[in-house]
């Protein structure tokens, strides 16, 4: 989390604003914690070796965990925001124990409804977009 300003309301936002980047915790203990609460304890999420044997680059982060991580990025930026819609496309696996980066930018604003649209990405260390999304947020 950078030390950029926290957004308190719609008036604090401009088109093109960048959300403070976040390096989320996708370590094995955290993915297992997520798996235990959601029932997603399959080997492809929790066992690097088995996942590699199956042709994956390693154990992978569940898609809905990536989605939840992107939602948390929005809340860190604007704690009072209401996320009305989040739409994520799982383009490629995010590997457990890797160091991905979450980013977001403001790409549309509706002055009447006081909502903003965001582009959201989760990229790997090489800068490749693995999870792509958009969100509609009320401020």
């Amino acid at each position: 989390m950078s030390d950029q300003k926290v957004v308190l309301g719609y008036g604090d936002v401009s088109f093109g604003d960048e959300l403070p980047e976040v390096i989320p915790d996708v370590s094995m203990p955290m993915v297992r914690r997520f798996g235990e609460t959601t029932g997603m304890t399959y080997w492809r999420f929790t066992d690097h070796e088995k996942a590699r044997e199956a042709g994956l680059p390693g154990a992978i982060v569940p898609g809905i965990m990536s989605q939840g991580i992107l939602v948390s990025l929005i809340h860190r930026w604007a704690p009072e925001a209401s996320v009305l819609k989040i739409d994520t496309i799982f383009r490629a696996p995010v590997v457990v124990d890797s160091r991905p980066t979450c980013r977001g930018v403001v790409t549309d604003m509706d002055d009447e409804k006081r909502t903003v649209e965001l582009d959201l990405t989760l990229s790997n260390e090489e800068g490749e977009t693995r999870v792509l999304g958009t969100a509609l947020v009320s401020l």
Binding site: V105, T107, D108, D119, T121, L132, T134
Partner: peptide, 9 residues
């Protein structure tokens, strides 16, 4: 070309 599917790309 960007092959962009979202605005910022």
């Amino acid at each position: 070309g960007s092959d962009s599917h979202i605005v910022s790309h």
